[in-house]
């Protein structure tokens, strides 16, 4: 039995990124998420664990599923939730964020969940306040809970991560999801390949221990799973790709392409999907896709994260 598996204790006040976590800490979150998933199956999908605690969702960038997922996770744990949503254009990095954080602390908030356009903003906030900070996506840096739910979903599906071949396909340059995925999957022993048009592969990414290709068929060929990222045309100033049609032709995941892959390849996508751009509708809705499972698992993973940071044991 796994009863004695988690011998480590969670000591971190915050969750800022998977780069800063050990393999054991990542596994601790995943194991807890498994238990929280059971809570989601109960007739009364709520436990009293965080009763009396308050979670603030502080979102400087638009987000639907991440914010709703965090809100549901907090509510399933009986925490109170407030949502603070600002237009990214009206906000400046720096003191404003710190001041907001200090005010939330003065309002006796326990956990701030922050989404920000600037890489490192959650870390700066975390240094300024004593309350817990959870990174819900910062710039092109990290989106740790998305990667955790990707890892959780794949581990649930295939039973393990160690030794798997995983290809991350799409806009690597602008993707915090890609970065967190690379940290998480490599720490758990998977072999990661990134695949993107040449202009969308950031310099130095190979230092993270990944294989690089711009040939999508090559990326699919031996993969146990592919994580297909959204093509962020709104961020693509360099015009790496002239059109969505062209992107789909060269990089889109289709049933035809998957015929040359492993028979039981797992297809993931963090959403929102652009059907007919990153992948065809048939693939998105097909039997290999675990996209909606990822959404459900996202709540369980975020419950685990909120639970652990709320009950962290300080390193003395």
């Amino acid at each position: 039995m796994s009863a004695t598996k988690n011998t480590i204790t969670w000591t971190k006040k915050d969750l800022l990124g998977l780069e800063y976590l050990s393999k054991e800490e990542i596994e601790l979150i995943l194991d807890h998420a498994k238990s929280f998933k059971e809570v989601l199956l109960r007739p009364l999908r709520k436990v009293p664990t965080l009763r009396g605690k308050t979670v603030a969702n502080l979102f400087y960038e638009p987000s639907t599923r991440t914010r709703i997922s965090f809100e549901l996770a907090a509510k399933r744990l009986s925490a109170d939730v407030i949502n603070i949503v600002k237009e990214s254009s009206s906000i400046q990095k720096g003191e404003t964020l710190i001041d907001t954080g200090r005010n939330l602390e003065a309002l006796k908030i326990d956990i701030i969940v922050v989404r920000h356009g600037s890489s490192g903003a959650p870390a700066a906030l975390s240094r300024a306040v004593d309350i817990s900070v959870v990174n819900a996506g910062d710039g092109w840096h990290e989106h740790p809970t998305q990667a955790l739910l990707d890892i959780f979903t794949l581990r649930e599906k295939l039973g393990k991560i160690n030794g798997l071949k995983i290809s991350i396909i799409g806009d690597i340059a602008h993707s915090r999801v890609a970065r967190s995925n690379i940290w998480g999957f490599t720490k758990l022993g998977a072999k990661v390949t990134v695949c993107a048009p040449k202009k969308l592969i950031p310099k130095g990414i190979e230092k993270l221990g990944v294989k690089i290709t711009s040939d999508v068929d090559d990326a699919i060929k031996d993969a146990d799973a592919i994580n297909v990222l959204r093509m962020q045309f709104e961020r693509d100033e360099k015009a790496a790709f002239p059109s969505k049609i062209q992107y789909f032709k060269n990089f889109g995941i289709t049933e035809e392409r998957l015929k040359r892959a492993k028979k039981d390849i797992v297809v993931m996508h963090p959403g929102p999907i652009n059907r007919g751009v990153e992948m065809s509708a048939e693939v998105a809705d097909g039997s290999k896709s675990v996209i909606l499972k990822q959404v459900t698992n996202g709540i369980a993973v975020r419950m685990a994260v909120l639970y652990l940071v709320a009950h962290h044991k300080r390193n003395i």
Binding site: W10, D31, H32, S35, E38, K313
Partner: peptide, 13 residues
Amino acid sequence: LTEIAEQPILKES
């Protein structure tokens, strides 16, 4: 939960 020294191991029901 906030008082105990050891973090309990959480498992499913």
